[in-house]
Design a protein around this nucleic acid. Structure first.
Lengths: 282, 282
DNA sequence: AGCGGGCGATACCCGGCGGGTATCGATCCG
DNA sequence: CGGATCGATACCCGCCGGGTATCGCCCGCT
């Protein structure tokens, strides 16, 4: 099975429409139809049910969509990591570390400083991404290592080491009556009158329904809180980012957040091993 | 990057010889040379250093060998799993469970029985393999789920659930003086005069050096022990397999063995989820 | 030093296949 | 019933993957 065939099939399976898929792939529709038929013949399996008015996936087609995406990611990762390894003329391709923008604001500089002081350190590029994008970036080779935050991020298919665990705090406008309380319960924070929890974008860019403001990053979020339009529960390390007119109150019954360093299991290079070792010793 | 190019490069990188690699691939040498050159041009990276007398991998080539193997495994897995999903006309492709031959001899039948009693159970094919082969079989799609034994097997890149933890026992000839002791220490078992530990094959089929007999499975192993030529430390569930003239003595300071059920993270089908749920409830 | 052999690179040819255009056949809609 | 939509089919072309022949280089043997 060639990656071209996989790309074609994934396009059709996602669009469920040969014409649109062909346009997306930049080819005409007939060669695409033929390629899919040929793939089905070679596999001996019907992947799509064509109804001349609609295209639907068979059970086998759903399997190939899932497995094919993973395979294409792996091929793409091989391509990208090889290019990177080749461009680095000095022999050490450097590392790309990815983390959510605004998270681990205390840990990350400490880690980078400590690692840079190691004898065989390589340059580390830091990539900031949105919620839930890290796993994808690791799998398709755009990043080598990530800082993830349990229980929010998934670590399936990744190797991990735990770094730190911290409690969470509620972030409120400084003048709010509850801001002077020694601690709050989750139930109290979730039902603050006039201070709904913000809504973060999903993987596809859309926002869930709800009363809270739509936010894309911590700057937006803190602005909304300072304006008295929202409240939020965050790991306590976010305190270092707080504006002057915001207050943080511990929420002991919120789930503890564990920061882990994660990497794709088959790509443990010497440089990566050094970074992980440094991280676990912090 | 096409899988054909990857297969070609992996062959050359493994053989470090264009002629042999071409023979292995069933093509002539010139097209292979050209394909590799073309791959290097497209990646903009030198993968191999040709010395007209020997071929060596560059750093980038080593990266592509590692990542390319993983990518080819993923493509192969997509192919195999799709074929299996299509052949199962009833819609449920069944599951392939792999475990080391001779291990989990108590747990496995219980698991299969319990799962078969579930309302939406699908047929489970059991595949027995050698030491350390399970991860490969999961990654390239020949199996869907495995029983692994920590700390011996690696679970990197797999999702797992712990099932049972057990102590280990020393297996000795029934007449051996130490066979009547209530327990032994690791140090004692490792230095039994005339009873060396057996040697298991490595991934490439070769055997490590040492005094013990070469064994490929438990039947061979137990025969050697019964003949008074070897001793071994195994999880205590192996007791159910013991021949009459063998004795098992607990070894409290041997590392505990944890049996886990493991599966590739991206392929959690409904049937697989049911099997895992059944396993964790045993 | 000279020569032969092994190995990768190059030159050149051919056939198959991937991609294009034109068109058909079926189905749904107004 | 006619037009529109969409996938399948028919047919053609150009590229590229694969083959054979050969070169150039370097090592090792004598």
């Amino acid at each position: 099975m060639e990656t071209r065939e996989l790309r074609y099939f994934v396009a059709v399976a996602e669009e469920l429409h040969f014409g649109r898929a062909a346009r997306r792939l930049g080819i005409a529709q007939p060669p695409l139809s033929r390629a899919i038929r040929q793939l089905e013949r070679r596999l001996g399996v019907t992947l799509l049910e064509r109804d001349s008015r609609s295209v639907t996936l068979t059970a086998a087609g759903a399997v190939l969509l899932r497995e094919g995406r993973a395979a294409l990611d792996a091929v793409e990762a091989a391509d990208r990591r090889t290019r990177r390894a080749g461009q680095a003329t000095n022999g050490d391709p450097g590392l790309v570390l990815v983390t959510k923008a605004g998270a681990s604001s205390e840990l990350l500089p400490k880690l980078l400083d400590a690692y840079a002081a190691e004898p065989d350190a390589v340059p580390v590029e830091v990539l900031l991404c949105g919620i839930g994008e890290q796993e994808r970036l690791l799998r398709d080779g755009r990043a080598d290592v990530a800082l993830l935050h349990l229980p929010f991020d998934s670590t399936t298919g990744l190797d991990t080491e735990e770094l730190v665990t911290e409690q969470q705090v509620a972030v409120l406008p400084a003048g709010h009556p509850l801001a002077r309380r020694p601690h709050l319960r989750m139930a109290e924070v979730e039902t603050l009158p006039g201070l709904p929890m913000p809504r973060w974008p999903r993987a596809d860019g859309s926002y869930p329904d709800g009363p809270g403001p739509e936010v894309r990053d911590h700057a937006q979020l803190f602005q909304h809180i300072a304006l008295g339009r929202a409240a939020v529960v965050l790991p306590e390390s976010c305190r270092s980012l707080l504006l002057a007119d915001l207050a943080a109150v511990p929420v002991p019954d919120a789930p503890a957040v564990t920061t882990v360093i994660a990497w794709p299991p088959h790509s443990r290079s010497r440089a990566l091993a050094g970074l992980v070792r440094t991280a676990t010793r912090l």
